[in-house]
Design a protein around this nucleic acid. Structure first.
Length: 267
DNA sequence: AGATATTCCTGGAGGC
DNA sequence: TGCCTCCAGGAATATC
């Protein structure tokens, strides 16, 4: 379940391995993932040199020297394996051969991932996205957006139009650190509370990226796989265990997905 | 426009 | 041991 920090860690790992390399060949093992692969994807990639790798929300944007951009989203279970020894795994869907003789393999059991190629500054999946939490995002921006919203704050933070990259795990953790209840109605959240929440989200994402960066070498060294890495969480998946405040972590369902929180300290 | 339900998919866990 | 059911989750999509 990669969230923004994991995707950022993958970006770093892919950058080290891919930038400056030429794609010598591409194998597509099926017609698509979440969406069909675009026509001629192999031909459009073959022969191109990778010049940069950027991230927007949870999308990886891989710049090619002819101006095309390869877009990769890991969905729920996508992983890139660099310097792969084998590409015959059950869910090995895409193989990229680089000019140093190495293979990079995309494996994705649940196939919620996306692989697309485009050119220019507009893509259907990117155009409606909200602010990057670690860049231009401010308490004021969040507060303004929440004024029109009557759904619970937890649901709004997961909405990619409000802010991108914050998934189910980090929204639970950030709300706990902020002492804000996940069931609070969004337009009742004060500007001061927005400031606390924005700050905690920035901190927790930055911490996770740092943790990812520090474990990347070991992580990528074991099997060359770039996906996500283990964390210590305070509330996520901790139903029934103790919160730091002395309360008990509870679980509830919001919008069809689990929320973990402490009713004693989150108000 | 915003809120809500549905959809995609497989592996893993729990029940019997 | 094996089968069944349920659940996890990002985000597009449809519907109200």
């Amino acid at each position: 379940m990669p969230e923004l920090p994991e995707v950022e860690t993958v970006r770093t790992g892919l950058s080290r391995s891919w930038i400056g390399k030429r794609i010598d060949g591409v194998e597509l093992r099926r017609a698509g993932l979440r969406f069909p692969f675009p026509d001629g994807l192999e031909e459009r990639l073959t022969g191109q040199v990778i010049t940069a790798i950027r991230r927007r929300a949870k999308y990886l944007l891989i710049d090619l020297d002819n101006g095309d951009i390869l877009l990769s989203h890991l969905g729920m279970s996508g992983k890139w394996t660099l310097d792969a020894n084998d590409c015959e795994g059950k869910h090995d869907h895409v193989v990229i051969h680089l000019d140093d003789g190495s293979m990079s393999v995309y494996n994705d059991p649940r196939r919620f991932g996306v692989l697309d190629i485009y050119r220019g500054d507009s893509h259907k999946l990117l155009d409606h996205l909200g602010p990057e939490p670690l860049e231009e995002w401010t308490a004021n921006d969040l507060f303004q957006k929440l004024q029109r919203r009557k759904s619970p704050i937890k649901i709004c933070i997961l909405d990619q139009k409000v802010v991108v990259g914050v998934g189910n795990i980090y929204v639970c953790e950030a709300l706990n650190r902020s002492k804000i209840s996940p069931i609070r109605i969004s337009n009742k959240i004060t500007l001061k509370e927005c400031a606390i929440l924005v700050n905690e989200i920035k901190i927790i994402l930055a911490e996770a990226i740092q943790a990812g960066g520090s474990t990347l070498r070991d992580f990528a060294g074991v099997d060359g796989t770039l996906g996500y890495f283990p964390h210590q969480f305070k509330v996520y998946d901790k139903e029934g265990s103790g919160c730091e405040c002395g309360g008990i972590v509870e679980r509830l369902i919001q919008g069809g997905r689990s929320t973990f929180w402490c009713a004693s300290c989150q108000k």
